[in-house]
Simulated scan of single mutants.
Amino acid sequence: MDNIDLEVLKTCSQWLASGLRCELVTVLKTWGSSPRPEGSMLAICEDGRVVGSVSGGCIEDDMIDRARREGLNRVQPGIVTYGITADEAHRFGLPCGGTIELAIEPLSPASQLGELLRRLEAGELVARRVDLQTGAVTLSTALPTQSMQVSSSALVTLHGPRWRLLIIGAGQLSRFVAQIAQGMDYAVTVCDPREEYRDSWQVAGVELATGMPDDVVQAMKLDSRCAVIALTHDPKLDDLALMEALRSEAFYVGAIGSRLNNQRRRERLAEHFDLNEEQLGKLHGPIGLYIGSKTPPEIAISILAELTAVKNAVALPQAANVADAKRELGLPPTGEVCIVSG
């Protein structure tokens, strides 16, 4: 599953290959409420087709109408603004007085989309610089800590995964977590030393590691843009890896299992691996948010929803926690529904 930005770039490349004119639109800045964050992209074709989004749909409708009536005649990149006045804000569905600033870039073979896609396919994080005066494009390797930059002379956007996710276990649940996470712009690694599980792994775009999970955790050199999810239910695979992950800078570390199993896991980690209270406090388990999930896809959504809340520093109510929610419902700590991931 491609993330939205990659889908936009691939579609632009296909339109150009078909001899169609198209433009790439990037959100530079917003004031007030906005449905799409800075850096969001949209591509528009001369026949009015669009992919991606820069608003809730109202600005897209205006661009489609203009493309069909006037064609795409822009020669150089430019910056346009929607919603300066209250009337425009109402017309385009923006909050009264709200503003959204967009860069519009006419694309051509010189836009280097083919080279960009090749480097993204190789897993590289790429900075794409567009000269706003000439339209010239240059590509360079970027750092995860970089962010989009815009000035009167140039626009620099980042492309490629800036977040990494390690999934321990190559079972059924892991496949759904990996697929959704790729669409969320994570570079996903699945680790499973068990031949019977890794031989049936079939998720494209995911790196498959066959070593012991704790060795893989160490080799990845986890930083603050990394997350680790243990899904095997096997302490021999999970515990050592969790120990290493909890001692790292990973922003999220979680493990599947019932409340009772997670309590036992915490006791093992404290007793045998000498983790302190602060390190143990980083462990999320039972993993995910309580949404009544039963099937693997629902559980994957629950897990990634919690991971996203932590990533975005959103403080969730205690009732959203699986353990607290089930305790409030009077459910026993054993016999809870869970999907064996491997």
Rank of each mutant, 00 (worst) to 15 (best):
87 D>F: 02
62 D>Q: 12
185 D>Y: 00
70 E>G: 03
334 T>F: 04
32 G>S: 09
322 V>Y: 02
207 E>R: 14
273 F>V: 07
265 R>H: 02
242 L>D: 03
329 L>Y: 09
322 V>F: 09
111 S>P: 05
258 S>F: 03
321 N>Q: 13
174 S>F: 02
273 F>D: 04
70 E>D: 15
15 W>H: 01
227 A>P: 04
46 E>D: 06
142 A>E: 06
258 S>I: 03
331 L>V: 12
214 D>F: 10
55 S>D: 07
83 G>Q: 02
117 L>G: 07
227 A>I: 10
168 I>K: 10
16 L>V: 07
39 G>K: 04
51 V>K: 13
186 Y>V: 09
307 L>W: 03
13 S>Q: 15
98 G>T: 03
91 R>K: 14
218 Q>E: 15
247 R>F: 08
51 V>D: 01
81 T>R: 10
239 D>I: 08
72 L>N: 03
262 N>G: 05
192 D>L: 06
303 I>N: 08
272 H>D: 13
320 A>H: 10
87 D>M: 03
265 R>W: 03
94 L>F: 02
236 K>Y: 04
176 F>A: 07
202 Q>A: 14
328 E>Y: 01
106 P>R: 11
313 A>N: 15
265 R>P: 02
89 A>L: 00
138 T>K: 15
226 C>I: 00
167 I>A: 05
115 E>I: 11
156 V>L: 13
177 V>H: 01
252 Y>A: 11
220 M>C: 12
111 S>C: 06
207 E>V: 12
248 S>P: 04
90 H>Q: 14
259 R>N: 08
241 A>I: 03
285 G>R: 01
1 M>L: 12
16 L>E: 05
262 N>C: 15
238 D>T: 04
260 L>E: 09
217 V>C: 11
186 Y>H: 12
157 T>V: 05
290 Y>V: 00
128 R>P: 03
250 A>N: 02
282 K>F: 08
315 A>I: 15
18 S>A: 15
331 L>N: 08
99 T>P: 00
323 A>H: 08
164 R>A: 05
224 S>Q: 14
128 R>H: 06
62 D>G: 11
328 E>A: 14
11 T>L: 06
39 G>N: 09
206 V>C: 11
263 Q>S: 10
93 G>W: 00
284 H>N: 14
90 H>F: 13
320 A>T: 13
84 I>L: 04
108 S>K: 12
94 L>R: 00
50 V>A: 07
14 Q>F: 05
232 T>M: 09
175 R>P: 03
